[in-house]
Amino acid sequence: MNVAQRVAIVTGGGGGIGGALVARLAHEGARVVVADLDAGTARAVSESVNADHPGSTVSAGADASDTAQIEQLIALAESAFGPVDLYFANAGIAGAPGLEVSEQDWDLSIDVNLRAHIRAARLLVPRWLERGEGYFVSTASAAGLLTQIGSATYSVTKHAAVGFAEWLSVTYGDRGVHVSCLCPMGVDTRMLSLGKDSGDALGKAAAQAVISAGDVLEPAEVADAVLAAIEDERFLILPHEDVLDMYRQKGSDYDRWLRGMRRYQNSLLAQA
């Protein structure tokens, strides 16, 4: 899909990967609703992008996991620009390490990292089927293909996000609904910094695992990879190419891979 003149919604658009996606989309001629739980950061990204590409974005503070607020984002896009062509389910949260995570934290992670995608798709896919075209981009993680040392909530919900994106593609891909799933490793964002500075041994090990597994990319590099995948209508987006080799190794011998991950975790904890 060529994104020029298309209408997009980007959740988690107030910075990091989301902010870079907004800038890249606007540069390519798209019109974008910048959505973030923090209305101030969404507005700042929108104003910055509009300075270079006047009128290309509007912003809104919104909880991307709330159905009513997703409906409001769609309505804003339609009133400002027209029918939504692309939805970037990019908002996400990291989650605390270990099994001691509360039920409330599990619910929050499942809502933001998974149900937000489901709720958006339920609203948009029927419209896209009527129009014969639409594009859903899910931000998951390499943790959704491999796993995440430290945070069970992150690893589990990112696996689920990959699974939901796969299901969307299988179910609607022959009816004009395109789906891509972004699975990066380390990206220089606030989420990665929170892990490094968590003060918790398992949390620090989790961040170090991401940092030591490959290059830490800039958000703009990830946004470039996403736009290239959309142009090709390619499902799996791997800004870190090594993830595919790791995924193949995992699938070829699960027990060996698990043993290796345990050794890797133990070495990281010894350094924490």
Rank of each mutant, 00 (worst) to 15 (best):
A39H: 03
F81A: 14
M185L: 15
A161E: 12
E233H: 06
S141I: 08
L73K: 01
A116E: 07
L76R: 01
F81P: 06
A77P: 04
D36T: 05
H53M: 11
E28N: 00
Q148S: 15
L269V: 02
A68M: 01
G40C: 13
A51M: 10
Q104I: 08
G55V: 08
D245F: 05
S109I: 03
V243H: 02
R234T: 07
A225N: 04
T41S: 15
I9S: 01
A228K: 12
L202Q: 08
V22C: 05
A209L: 11
R256W: 00
A160L: 08
S212N: 13
N266T: 10
D255L: 15
G40R: 08
A94N: 14
L217I: 03
Q148C: 14
A270T: 03
N113P: 07
S46V: 03
L192A: 06
L217Q: 02
T147P: 09
S252N: 11
G18P: 00
M261A: 06
A121T: 08
V137N: 02
A161S: 05
G186Y: 05
L37T: 11
V222F: 04
N266L: 12
Y154N: 14
V84W: 03
Q72D: 09
V226P: 01
D85T: 10
L114Y: 02
Q271V: 12
R127Q: 15
I230P: 04
Y247V: 14
A213T: 00
D188H: 03
L146T: 14
N50Q: 09
L182T: 07
Q5E: 01
V58Q: 03
A80V: 01
M246L: 14
T41E: 13
L124T: 08
V162L: 07
G12F: 06
G98A: 11
